[in-house]
């Protein structure tokens, strides 16, 4: 049972993102902004920070591929970006101390990198023609705020869960 806990959790977040967008009204706070949930990726970054590099990158690759196939229908974007940023985050965490505040800041940084990276790729293959400044205003800031709120709410339970998981791994 415990073995399936993490995959189930990530699968739940994977579906939650889609549900969140489906029920989100057109104008949040009366303004035209695009809010993008990255709950799944925030959890993967927490996994990388609190459990380990190997686990983080494996989960990032699997769910990146799943995300590409199911939602985007262009294989490769998230499959590449998720593990790459997980790897970068694990490198950063080698220098920094592991605690809640650092984890929060590093996750936000990771999500910011993800947004910019995916924007650049989509711009390159002409999926979007939004210019960089309106991307920043329309999408980037609101998305960061939304995901910061998610991490503040879900961060502590996630940290507890992953620390327990890491301990179980060590005992084995």
């Amino acid at each position: 049972m415990k073995k399936f806990l993490l995959p189930l959790l990530f699968l739940f977040l994977f579906l939650l993102e889609s549900l969140f967008v489906q029920y989100l009204p057109e104008n949040v706070f009366g303004r035209n902004r695009i809010l993008v949930p990255h709950f799944l990726f925030a959890a993967i970054l927490f996994l990388t920070i609190f459990v380990g590099k190997k686990q983080g990158i494996i989960y990032a690759a699997i769910f990146g591929l799943l995300f590409d196939i199911v939602y985007v229908e262009i294989i490769g974007i998230y499959l590449f970006v998720y593990p790459f940023i997980s790897y970068l985050v694990s490198k950063i965490m080698q220098i920094l101390q592991t605690n809640m505040i650092i984890a929060f800041l590093v996750s936000i940084f990771g999500i910011a990198l993800l947004e910019v990276g995916v924007y650049e790729m989509n711009h390159l293959i002409h999926v979007t023609n939004v210019d960089f400044m309106s991307f920043i205003n329309l999408r980037f800031y609101p998305t960061l705020i939304l995901n910061a709120a998610f991490i503040i709410i879900a961060g502590y339970p996630l940290k507890r869960l992953f620390e327990k998981h890491a301990e179980a791994l060590r005992v084995e």
């Binding site: 579906l15 889609s18 549900l19 995300f67 199911v70 939602y71 229908e73 924007y119």
Partner: peptide
């Protein structure tokens, strides 16, 4: 019935 929507919102798609 709509059962999902692309969360990354670059590709506007529903399932």
């Amino acid at each position: 019935t709509v059962i999902g929507r692309n969360p990354d919102r670059w590709h506007e798609m529903i399932i």
